[in-house]
Design a protein around this nucleic acid. Structure first.
Length: 488
RNA sequence: CGGGACGUAGCCUAGGGGCUAAGGCACCUGGUUUGGGACCAGGAGAUCGGAGGUUCAAAUCCUCUCGUCCCGACCA
């Protein structure tokens, strides 16, 4: 059984790939570095999208769409931006059989083309704020790719807003970070740390980058979303000036923020197990599957009974299916639905039918409970809710158990082990999150990275007050509390 | 872009100069089954990644090429 999935303890990376492929979430494509998102994976993305999109709209944002291709010269208008993205651009040099006068790049992110348009749309403070978002794909020519986590083309949303004042833009940056955290925790059941990036880790062209960071089961960090305060960098680069209430011209203040299909990778690496995918009920395409136990003499009766149960589940608002295929054995179906991450399995055979019961099995715990078919919808709902809570709590407990406060260099190095090795990714290899004080110098950061591959994931929000003590790297007076980890 | 491994059916693997390229999984047909990945019988599926060369003879040897994976470097 389950020879299809490499256990996490043997090879975490391979386990992850096995889950993605076997649960039919995605597949490798003929295009190097690009993957196909299959219907089962896309269905999850659609549910994630729906949660974000609703909140974007509730906070006043509108969806729009900008071109895939961006004139190369646009990228060059913001110095740091072009430096940051140039190495990973795909460039279009020909069109209609002729060489283009000016090459286009395939968007790696859309700040530049969007701000080139904002110039036309913003003249007065009355035109602000402009709160636009687009759902699209972007392309970054990555040298080394991993399904969902890093592919050359990926799906995401990018919000781009323009504001009258710095304070408003900062507020927007934090509002969106808050929405990311809320959806990550409530729906993806990912406990995340929200915080600010260090200078060296921030977005190319931003004044400040904020992020949410999650811990995967191998104790490595995964950046799950980012929100940038861009200051007036793009306003100036694209000459987006407006006349303010005082009659003076000022450059617009900007933010941008994004989450991508990488979230699906986070979902997998946080909750799934050696049997396959485990999904939070709120995002699972199938929340329950009824597996009938069919025997020759009782087949018709059991199936009819299952149909009634299915109707009751649906009436209770549960996304349920009936697996009536009689060419596969129940055991085969059990394994298959576990692989696919169906939250509840409801076994119904002649014995259950006689007793008016169904055997309900939770995907995350494997717990089996015989439940009266009368009122099954409501009970299933309770189980799904409990599962949603417990996935989050379990992940949170895991993160806490693998987070350590460190006072000095010795403790930090001991926590991560001298040699990073990556251990080809066995779950024990990565240490976890370390919390320590930091002086703020890029040298400390760079040195640590070179030595151990550990980086500052973020400076957690709300914990930066009253910092006193020595930098855990160099011993000089500290300015920040930092969360350290190896990351994806 | 450096180091390594590898391309044989949808997938995994055998065959390393010779006669009809072998097996497992998956697939199709029929039947018996069905409470943790069922069984029997039959069937379909391959110009052995591509090009060139050596040879009476190439999946097999040589050269080139394309591609994939792993490890680095790179990377929100």
């Amino acid at each position: 059984m389950a020879e299809k999935i490499t256990p996490r303890s043997v090879d975490y990376s391979q386990w992850y790939i096995d889950i993605v492929l076997n649960a039919k979430l995605a597949d490798y494509s003929p295009v190097k570095g690009a993957m196909v998102i299959r219907p089962r994976g896309y269905a999850i993305w659609e549910r994630i999208q729906a949660e974000f999109d609703r909140r974007f709209k509730e906070t006043g944002h509108q969806n729009a769409y900008f071109p895939l291709l961006i004139p190369m010269s646009f990228l060059q208008k913001e110095k740091e931006h072009v430096e940051g993205f140039k190495p990973e651009l795909a460039v279009v040099t020909h069109g209609g059989g002729e060489e283009l006068e000016e090459p286009y790049c395939v968007r790696p992110t859309s700040e530049t083309i969007i701000w080139s348009m904002y110039k036309n749309w913003i003249q007065s403070y009355r035109d602000l704020p402009l709160l636009y978002n687009q759902w699209c794909s972007v392309m970054r020519w990555e040298k080394r790719t991993r399904l969902f986590l890093r592919t050359s083309e990926f799906l995401w949303q990018e919000g781009h807003t323009a504001h009258e004042t710095e304070a408003e833009a900062v507020e927007e940056t934090m509002r969106m970070l808050g929405i990311y955290k809320e959806v990550a925790e409530k729906h993806l059941c990912l406990p995340v740390i929200a915080g600010r990036k260090s200078e060296s880790e921030k977005f190319a062209g931003a004044v400040a980058t904020y992020c949410i960071e999650a811990m995967m089961q191998d104790k490595k960090a995964l950046q799950a979303g980012t929100s940038h305060f861009l200051g007036q960098n793009f306003g100036k680069a694209f000459d987006v000036q407006f006349q303010g209430r005082d009659g003076r011209l000022e450059y617009a203040w900007a933010t941008s923020w994004g989450v991508s299909t990488r979230l699906i990778g986070a979902l997998i690496m946080t909750h799934s197990d050696d049997r396959g995918l485990v999904l939070p009920p709120s995002l699972a395409p199938e929340q329950a599957v009824i597996v009938p136990i069919l025997k020759n003499d009782t087949k018709a009766a059991v199936l009819a009974y299952c149909e009634k149960v299915l109707a009751e589940l649906k009436a209770a608002g549960i996304r349920a299916i009936l697996d009536a295929d009689d060419t596969q054995s129940p055991g085969w179906k059990f394994a298959e639905h576990e692989m696919n991450g169906v939250c509840l399995r409801i076994e119904i055979g002649p014995r259950d039918m006689e007793a008016g019961k169904a055997m309900v099995v939770r995907r995350d715990t494997g717990e089996k409970t015989p439940i009266d078919v009368l009122g099954l919808g409501a009970r299933a709902r309770e189980l799904l809710d409990a599962m949603q809570t417990s996935l989050y709590e379990r992940a949170r407990a895991f993160r806490i158990a693998n987070t350590k406060s460190v006072a000095d260099r010795g403790e930090l190095l001991a926590f991560y082990g001298k040699d990073q090795g990556e251990g080809s990714g066995t779950a024990a290899a990565s240490g976890g999150f370390a919390e320590g004080l930091w002086c703020g110098s890029a040298e400390c950061e760079a040195e640590l990275k070179a030595e151990t591959k550990v980086t500052i994931r973020c400076l957690p929000e709300g914990r930066q007050e009253g910092i006193a003590g020595a930098c855990c790297l160099c011993g000089k007076p500290a300015k920040h509390l930092a969360v350290f980890a190896r990351n994806y």
